[in-house]
Design a protein around this nucleic acid. Structure first.
Lengths: 124, 124
DNA sequence: ACGCTGTATAACCTCTCGGTTTTATAACCA
DNA sequence: TGGTTATAAAACCGAGAGGTTATACAGCGT
């Protein structure tokens, strides 16, 4: 249960991959759809997807010649759990930020209908 | 405010560095103290510390010829905030884990005297 | 002044990463 | 059957990670 953190954090260390995850949070997408926003070749995206897949962050189906990707957030939860152990430490420093997360959480729950303009969006 | 995630996640992607952070959650420590548990040369640890420092995860003081390190958890909070955007997605899949975090949190609050022993300890 | 302790720097090696271009595979369409 | 679309695979490249050993530097103790 304490493995894979290497792969998970390493996968998250790249802005392109974080953006891909953000996109996939919206719903399934094909490789070319995912590649579109980036000034990068298609094979480069395929490589990123392979990294995400090996980290367990995405999984892929088959639809004709397309290979749709979908988010698999399990590892993100593991990562979050690891980080949670340090919550106190930044709470010490500046407790106000403890609220930030609660706000964030509340915002998400409330904004079920409102057009999310909040973060989760990286990259141009 | 949404930068540095690259550096933060990259820093967290190494088990040695995660272990160092776990150790520092206990309190300040000198370089040799930090190096002790690892089957690795001292310069290697110094390099890891430089990575952590450049990621803003630690800062260092001076006490005689020693250069004590202390945890600076700000970036961890940023990382947590980023991950928080995906909470729903694993909540969908298996809601039970939503509780896990609450339990973890509760455990920490209760164990006000026992600093993070959960996980964090990697490596042989 | 001398030597010891604590830490950083330098030079080097190997491996992986992130990107490229080119080519192959697979499944659709006509 | 042939062509086009969607994706993967191969071969290559430069840069950086992560480790090593050897060396330099700083500050203490005597």
């Amino acid at each position: 249960m304490h493995t894979d953190l290497d792969a998970t954090f390493a996968a998250l260390a790249d802005p392109t991959r974080r953006a891909i995850l953000a996109r996939l949070a919206t719903g399934e997408a094909t490789v070319t759809e995912l590649a579109a926003p980036f000034a990068m070749s298609q094979p480069a995206i395929s490589k990123h997807l392979r990294v995400l897949e090996r980290a367990g962050l995405i999984s892929r189906g088959r639809s004709a010649q397309r290979r749709p990707c979908r988010l698999n957030a399990g590892p993100l939860q593991e990562a979050t759990a690891w980080l949670a152990a340090y919550r106190d430490h930044w709470a010490e420093s500046y407790q106000r930020l403890d609220n930030l997360l609660d706000e964030l959480r509340a915002a998400e729950e409330t904004a079920a209908s409102e057009p999310a303009e909040a973060e989760g969006d990286d990259r141009a």
